[in-house]
Computed example of a mutant assay.
Amino acid sequence: MNKYCVNGFKFQIEEVSRNKKTNNSGVYIQGNVDGTSQTIEYYGVIQEIIEVRYLGWPKKKIVLFRCEWFDPSPRGTKMDH
């Protein structure tokens, strides 16, 4: 998929957003550092959107974003493949 809309938000892969006036390919998550109370922020760019549908009842689906992640901390930028 190139685009996905959920809860009033529209996400696009980087390739689609590249030549647009607005960019909707950025994502952000916040996580804990190895079980401590310290948090770290990660920023990413959506590379691919995949929707997986499960057969049967009730119908279920999950949407996965494959992203290129960046760590903007003082430790420098890193990529998580």
Rank of each mutant, 00 (worst) to 15 (best):
N2H: 09
N2D: 15
K3V: 07
Y4R: 01
C5N: 09
V6I: 15
N7T: 00
N7C: 05
G8S: 07
G8Q: 10
G8P: 06
F9Q: 06
F9C: 07
K10F: 01
F11M: 08
F11R: 01
Q12N: 12
I13F: 05
E14M: 11
E15P: 02
V16T: 04
S17T: 12
R18N: 10
N19P: 00
K20F: 08
K21V: 06
T22A: 14
T22M: 07
N23G: 00
N23E: 13
S25V: 09
S25I: 09
V27I: 14
Y28G: 00
I29D: 06
I29A: 09
Q30E: 15
Q30T: 14
Q30A: 10
G31P: 00
N32S: 12
V33H: 03
T36R: 15
S37Q: 13
S37R: 08
S37K: 12
Q38V: 08
T39E: 12
I40L: 12
I40Q: 13
E41S: 13
E41F: 07
E41L: 06
Y42Q: 03
Y43F: 09
V45K: 08
I46V: 13
I46F: 04
I46L: 03
Q47L: 15
Q47H: 01
Q47W: 00
E48L: 11
E48Q: 15
I49G: 02
I50R: 05
E51A: 13
E51T: 14
E51V: 15
V52E: 15
R53L: 11
Y54N: 09
L55D: 15
G56K: 03
G56P: 05
P58I: 06
K59L: 12
K59M: 11
K59A: 14
K60S: 11
K61S: 15
K61F: 12
K61W: 05
I62W: 04
I62K: 14
V63A: 05
V63E: 12
L64I: 13
F65P: 10
F65V: 13
C67A: 05
C67H: 01
P72M: 00
P72D: 00
P74T: 11
P74F: 07
P74M: 05
R75F: 06
T77W: 08
K78G: 04
M79N: 14
D80S: 09
